[in-house]
Structure formats: structure tokens, C-alpha cells
Design a protein around this nucleic acid. Structure first.
Lengths: 349, 349
DNA sequence: TAGAGCCTGGACAACGTTGTCAGATGCGAG
DNA sequence: CTCGCATCTGACAACGTTGTCCAGGCTCTA
């Protein structure tokens, strides 16, 4: 088929037309291909008259540059990827948004993906993003082995881990001080007279969960309290099982008088359980929650700033991309204990 | 430069290496380019022995297919875009996540972008996504003129508007029944004896805000109540101004005895204001809020299912992409009044 | 053993863009 | 009027992949 008739069969108003290309614009404007490219990219060396003709052709055809082709030629995509656990979780929304703003400031788009806390899905997503040739990758790990990213990092994909460290590779990581935060929160409960304190957390496979458990144990040990097996519940994450776990440690011969909740979802369920009981039980949660101050009693929490976490990580990523070659670093952000009442309840023995 | 030495200067272990291509894999495996392509894409017609050799070369080099090039050749990107207002808003997180799940089921990636409720930024984002050649676009409009998308839609970008209708173009839209929901909520307050009812909502430029205001007015009119100017506050959106607006309608000679809050952010602020006051004021909010049932009193809301909104829109989008050519349709999802106490308080006159 | 038919593998062009480089054009000066 | 220079323009290759098509080797049958 002769070149000039390649698009002859396209109906002018058809719903699924082929897109016009620079070649089409060039033909319509009666100029060369490269001249169109120059106009589209604002490069110098085009007379105002030519530029006007090209611009008219662009508008008439509804041309839009194909960034896929551009990427192929230039090598950079001006996009970064963020693999997180679940965008619907109020912890990750602000984090993602903060990353997006930093990306925007650097002229890049952000592609999010949710791993649903499944290591395989995390890997699948991260590699899919690499196949799209994102310039950089932020990963909130679900798994604990990230050697699969080694070829990508070697190939130049800037990579920063967020909230939890990378497994089995050496890479930048930005996280909150889960250990210190949990220890502070539990110490706070102990200071208010509690000794039988429960801990409900996520799977210890998850770094933050393990660290918070470690903080809990450290605080108890510092005060010379021996932790009983029945006081800790690990790996429960869905509301129904959290509920059962809470109810178990609250009943029996020697019930706990306070609970430390390992993350925002656990906290919410525990609040619901406690609301149904008459005997007051102290509660400190990891992660802040909207309206926490309006509950009765107000919710005492160990707060981390998820937006700051995201912003810090994204800025680190772009510093990698700016070419400043940095040795992998671990940045730990402090947490903040916010007292609102629930953590200051005395033990009801 | 002779072809064979093109990559000769690449250091084997350098941090910023060039990526291996299919050509490199082919050379290493001693096969042709297309054979590598066949292996990578699982196409038939490769003997097990050859396949093994190719796979070894892929692993050894850390090859990963470049999807940009693939897109260029195939025409589809297997990605869709979602332009929303703010990913950090608890209303959009679940919506985005629901869209992501539908996309995943269709083998597509989702690219989110936040418009920050700015029409220019919405356009900039939507067009940037089109330049990346997303196969489809979901837009939660910030602006009210979407003619800029006409060339894209004509070129085959599947497009569905969510939560608010498109402006000045005919396109699919999936939204909640804001008008009916607001009318129900206000009617509920009237049924509990209120006549002086305040309305605090977003800018009327935003379709949902305008519809909710219309619902409020209709409910009032249905009951023969003349709405006084001082009872409605429009366009206030930041907490400080919402607070002032609420305080104004609650003080003065003839204060309102109930408030209808036009969206989740307004509701949260109003709850805070009411919590500081001794005289009980009834409240119904549009959008549900986590822990709403644990407040005192529990929060009565007009709930919409943001995840369902996203899922419905995404499914519609993929039906467009499947080639079933559909006439633009308007899908309206019902809202649900959830009574928890705050909306059933009697007027404290 | 020769021919037909099938299976595997590879050469080549094309996707739409940008970088390189050389050609064309216009202007001023000698 | 011609040369030189600066400015503008366009031809061409390359980016990495996939679709098309043909060649070569194999098996099976007559």
C-alpha cells in the first residue's frame, strides 16, 4: 500500500479513529517532520510564521504527542511507581498524595499499585512498573526478599523503600520508629498503673508489626513485668478475628486491664469491642485516627506522619535520580504520643 | 560506530548500566530476535531446548521487556487513568482501590492523579494521561467544560465520568443521587420536628454540591418552610471557614436547630463545633465516616458507596474498551440514610 | 529415495518520536 | 553580482518491540 493512502480509510468523524501523528501534522502544515517536533517541544529555530501554520494543523487534527514513542527515544518516562498495601487504608491515602505532590514538582506522574499485603503481588506489581520503565520505584514491602529488584536497580531504577526496610538487599529506606513508638505507648500505660497489658498486632513477618511487638516487650521488660502468652495476639488482621482476640484477653480469670493496638485497623475494631463493655479498659493505638479526640474517652495514640513519610521518601528518590549517587541510607522518623484519655484510664482491677 | 561495539563501554557491575534488550538476549542465546520475543510472550513454535537457552540468557542478563516499545508496536497500553480530587480524602481512597481491582481483573494498571479541585490541573492531568496513551480515562470533574477531551474520545480513549457529570460533552457518567440523598436527609430532620435547618456545602460550581443544595431546598419547600438566607453557607470548604459558618448559624436571635452537612469534610468540622456546645443540635451528614457510630450521639448520615461508584464506572469503561459501542448513559446509584442518633435529636428551642 | 507438508527460526519493516547532520534560504558585505 | 555566514528546515537513523513472511530442515508417505 502506498504510504500516502495509509490512513485513507479513516472516517473523519468515526468513534475509533487512528490518532494523527507528527507526520500527519507535517503533511497538513506542509513542513517537515522535525519542524513539527520542534514546535511541539518548544525548541528554538522555527520562524513565527511556520510555527503558526504547524500549530493550526495540530489544533485542526487534534494531535497529541505520543509519549510512549517519546519515552522509547529519550529513555526517561517522567513517571515513578509506588507499591503500597491498600490505597483504601487511611494511612496510605495521605502518603500517596504526598508522593504525588513531590513527583508533580519534578514533572513526573505517579503510578500506584496495591499489593494487598501479598508478597507475590508486590513483586508482580513492582516488576510491571519496571517494565513500563518508571524512572523510580517506591516500595512499601509486603514480602521480605527483594533480590528480584537487583537487576532493575543495577539498570538504573531509583529505588526507595518506605515504612518497612528492604529484605536481603541494601537500599534506601524511610520509616517510622515503630519500636520506639510502641515502647513509649506501652510505657505510658505502665506509668498509669497497668501491668497486665495486651498487644494485638499484625503478622510478625511484617517488619513494622515485629518492631512494635519488640517495643511492647521491651517496655514490659524494662518495668520487670513478665509477659504472659495470653496477652499477645499476632497475625490477626481481619476485624472478626481481632474482635475475638480482644474478647479473649478481656475475659478469663486474669484479664488484661489495657490494650496496645498495633495499627489503625486493629485500633478501630478494639474501640468497638471496648465500647460494648461496661468495665473501662485503657487503650493506646499505633497510628492516629480521624475524630479520635471526639470518642469517649478520646483515643490516645502513637501517631506517625504518613504524609511526611511519603514526602521524605519521594524526595530521596528524586535525589537519586538527580544523579547524586548516594550510599543506601536508613531514615527513621520519630513518632509522637498524643494523650486524649483512653490511655490514661487507671486499671479497673 | 560499528553495531557490535555499541554497548562495549558498559561496565558489567556499574550502577547505571544500559538495559539489555532482546537483541542482547538473542546474541547471548545464539538465536534470532523474534525467537526471544516468542519466548518472552509465551508464543508457540519454540522447541523446549531453544526456549531453555533463551530463558537462561534472560536470567543471566536480567532482561525485562520494555513495555514502552511494546505499546508503540501494539497500540494498547493496558493502563487506564483516574483523575480525582484528592487521594488523601477518605472518600476517594476506596473508590480508587475499587477501580484498581477492576483494572487488575482486566490486566490493566491504574494511574491516579489528583486535581486538587482545580479545573486547569484536571485538564493538564487528563491530557498528560492521554499523551501516555492510557486506553481509558475515568474523570471526577473539577471543571465544568470537558470539550478539551473531544479529540481524545474521538481517537478512541474510553471515557467515563464519575461522581459528577461531564460539562458540555455527551459522555458516560456514574454518580450518586445527591439530590435525592440530600432531600431524604433534610426531610428526616424535618420529620423530627426541625424547621430552622442549616446547610453547609461546597462551591455550587461543583455538581454534587449544587445537587445537594437543590435537595435541601426541595425538602424545605415540600414542607412549606421558607429558607432564610442566613441558613445556607456555600463554597466554604476549609475547616476554619466551615467552623465560622457553623458558629454563625448557631448563634444570633434565631439560630438553626439542625444542620445538614454537604460532605464528609464539612461534617467532621461541624461535629467538632457541636462537641464544644452544650445545647444539642441535630446533624445529618452527606457521606459516611469511620467510627460514626461511636460518637456521642452517633452520627446520622446519607451514605454513598464510593467503592461501588468506582467499580461501576470502571466496569463501564472496560465494556467500552471491549468494543461494545454504547450510547452515553447516566447511571445514578441510590444513597442510604443511616440513623445513629445525631439526626434524631429533637429541636432544642 | 524423492516429494509434500509441517515445524522451527530469523530477516525485515513498522510503530511515532527525537538527535544528528547536511542542505536550503536569506541577508549583508565586498 | 557573488560570496560567506547565520538561520531555518528536513532527510534519515535509531530507540526496542512485534507482525509478516520466507527459508531451511525435518518427518512421513508413495
Amino acid at each position: 500500500m502506498p504510504e500516502t493512502s495509509r490512513r485513507a480509510d479513516r472516517l473523519p468523524g468515526s468513534r475509533y479513529g487512528t490518532r494523527p501523528t507528527m507526520k500527519d501534522v507535517a503533511a497538513r502544515a506542509g513542513v517537515g517532520l522535525k519542524t513539527v517536533s520542534r514546535v511541539v517541544n518548544g525548541e528554538p529555530g522555527v520562524t513565527p510564521d511556520t510555527e503558526r501554520r504547524v500549530q493550526e494543523a495540530i489544533d485542526a487534527l487534534g494531535f497529541r504527542r505520543n509519549d510512549s514513542a517519546r519515552v522509547l527515544r529519550k529513555g526517561r518516562t517522567a513517571s515513578i511507581g509506588l507499591v503500597l498495601e491498600d490505597l483504601a487504608d487511611p494511612f496510605y491515602g495521605p502518603l500517596s498524595r504526598a508522593v504525588e505532590e513531590v513527583a508533580r514538582a519534578h514533572g513526573a506522574l505517579l503510578i500506584n499499585g496495591s499489593s494487598a499485603e501479598d508478597p507475590d503481588r508486590e513483586q508482580e506489581l513492582a516488576l510491571a512498573l519496571c517494565a513500563r520503565r518508571v524512572d523510580g520505584l517506591l516500595v512499601i514491602p509486603a514480602g521480605d526478599d527483594h533480590r528480584y529488584l537487583e537487576p532493575e536497580i543495577r539498570a538504573g531504577v531509583a529505588t526507595v523503600f518506605v515504612d518497612r526496610p528492604a529484605g536481603k538487599i541494601d537500599a534506601d529506606v524511610v520509616l517510622s520508629d515503630s519500636y520506639g513508638g510502641a515502647r513509649d505507648g506501652v510505657t505510658h500505660l505502665i506509668a498509669h498503673g497497668h501491668r497486665r497489658i495486651g498487644f494485638i498486632g499484625d503478622m510478625p513477618r511484617i517488619h513494622t508489626a515485629a518492631e512494635r511487638l519488640r517495643g511492647y516487650r521491651a517496655a514490659m521488660e524494662d518495668s520487670g513485668i513478665a509477659v504472659e502468652e495470653a496477652w499477645t495476639s499476632l497475625g490477626v488482621t481481619d476485624p472478626e478475628r481481632v474482635r475475638r482476640a480482644a474478647e479473649e484477653m478481656l475475659s478469663g480469670a486474669d484479664p488484661v486491664t489495657a490494650i496496645f493496638a498495633g495499627n489503625n485497623r486493629v485500633t478501630v475494631t478494639v474501640i468497638r469491642v471496648l465500647a460494648e463493655r461496661s468495665r473501662p479498659v485503657a487503650l493506646v493505638g499505633f497510628d492516629d485516627i480521624e475524630l479520635a479526640e471526639l470518642l469517649h474517652p478520646g483515643l490516645t495514640v502513637v501517631a506517625q506522619d504518613s504524609a511526611l513519610l511519603g514526602r521524605t521518601a519521594a524526595e530521596r528518590l528524586f535525589r537519586q535520580l538527580d544523579g547524586t549517587l548516594l550510599a543506601p541510607e536508613r531514615i527513621e522518623l520519630p513518632t509522637r504520643l498524643i494523650t486524649r484519655g483512653s490511655g490514661e484510664l487507671p486499671p479497673a482491677d
